[in-house]
Computed example of a mutant assay.
Amino acid sequence: MKLDHSLSLFSFIYLVILPLISAQACQRTCGKLPINYPFGTGPFCGDPRFQQYVSCNQDKLTLTTQTGRYPVTKIDYANQAIYISDPSMSTCACTQPSKGFGLDWDAPFSFHDDNVFTLLDCSTTASPIFRSNNFDGNNSPTVPLCDRQGTPICSFLYSCTAISMLNLPISTCCVYTPVDLGPSFELDLQKLKCSSYSGFYSFSGQEANPENGQYGITLKYKFNVFNNYPSLCANCEMSNGACGYAEVYNAFVCNCPSGLNTTTDCYFGVSWNDGKRLLPWHRGTLILSLVWFVFRMIL
């Protein structure tokens, strides 16, 4: 009888106590980047809509789209923007062929207004970006795809040593304007008959010096239709937890440093007489005390 009682207690420890003191599944950082909602570092972390697009592998945060995987260099949580780099993008220091960049049609991202895309080495005879007529074959108005005010940017970019060595005429450059088409936008260089592109999100106040440009792509994101930060998630992160979701119904889950998942936050409880909340690390102390008590019962 005593043996059965001991086995039951050990089963209780294995099935209930040990999972509570396991490592936190959802981390608050990925490498040097802080991770907050709606992003996550693993399965069932962050917002499920973002899970398939942004992931953390070997301390590197990456964005995955239909055109490839791109390192995330910075996240501006205050302005709800992420910054990515494209290894195939041409810069003032290096020019190389590229297939372009695109977003999935259902991705929870859109292009930021600060983006400036410059198409390089485009065919002046075959590329659809060079349209001389105001109407197409169906007598429908055409939309100019090159910004006529972008000539200085092309001039500065084509003056870079890496690009100037290709001896490309300035007419093969185009500052691409239709970047406001939302998530369905795709910079398909093969279709546009261009060999490469550059993307800027800032010139650091030195538009005349392309070497100092901030190369990359900035994407905007929203929390939901109304763009409201979930209050449950805010409370969870304030208690040192990481926001996540359950496998069933995608219900909200707060993942705590102790490894415990809750539906509220990582505080153990609140006394009704305005006492202090139990700090998150107290939870581990309480669990260890419970384990010690169980072992004392066995002995």
Rank of each mutant, 00 (worst) to 15 (best):
residue 76 D to P: 03
residue 141 P to S: 11
residue 64 T to L: 09
residue 68 G to E: 08
residue 85 S to V: 02
residue 112 H to Y: 07
residue 186 E to Y: 00
residue 170 I to D: 11
residue 131 R to K: 12
residue 100 G to Y: 01
residue 59 D to G: 02
residue 179 V to I: 14
residue 169 P to W: 06
residue 160 C to H: 03
residue 156 F to L: 02
residue 121 D to Q: 14
residue 56 C to H: 10
residue 69 R to D: 12
residue 173 C to D: 03
residue 56 C to L: 09
residue 83 Y to P: 00
residue 184 S to V: 14
residue 100 G to N: 04
residue 75 I to V: 14
residue 108 P to V: 05
residue 80 Q to M: 08
residue 186 E to G: 14
residue 79 N to P: 01
residue 155 S to P: 00
residue 55 S to H: 13
residue 154 C to L: 04
residue 55 S to M: 09
residue 137 G to E: 07
residue 159 S to Y: 02
residue 124 T to C: 06
residue 130 F to V: 05
residue 157 L to M: 10
residue 137 G to M: 02
residue 166 L to V: 02
residue 116 V to L: 12
residue 137 G to S: 11
residue 113 D to Y: 10
residue 91 T to H: 02
residue 99 K to P: 00
residue 132 S to C: 03
residue 182 G to C: 05
residue 100 G to V: 07
residue 77 Y to R: 03
residue 166 L to H: 09
residue 173 C to N: 04
residue 184 S to H: 09
residue 108 P to D: 13
residue 180 D to I: 06
residue 130 F to Q: 10
residue 101 F to C: 05
residue 132 S to K: 09
residue 161 T to E: 13
residue 92 C to D: 11
residue 68 G to D: 11
residue 96 Q to I: 12
residue 130 F to E: 13
residue 151 T to F: 05
residue 126 A to G: 00
residue 145 L to S: 04
residue 187 L to D: 09
residue 172 T to H: 13
residue 62 T to Q: 14
residue 170 I to G: 02
residue 144 P to M: 08
residue 61 L to F: 07
residue 97 P to W: 04
residue 115 N to A: 05
residue 127 S to Q: 11
residue 81 A to Y: 01
residue 176 Y to D: 14
residue 94 C to T: 11
residue 117 F to L: 09
residue 170 I to M: 13
residue 144 P to A: 10
residue 74 K to Q: 11
residue 182 G to K: 07
residue 171 S to F: 01
residue 69 R to Y: 00
residue 151 T to R: 12
residue 122 C to G: 12
residue 75 I to S: 07
residue 83 Y to L: 10
residue 64 T to R: 15
residue 150 G to F: 02
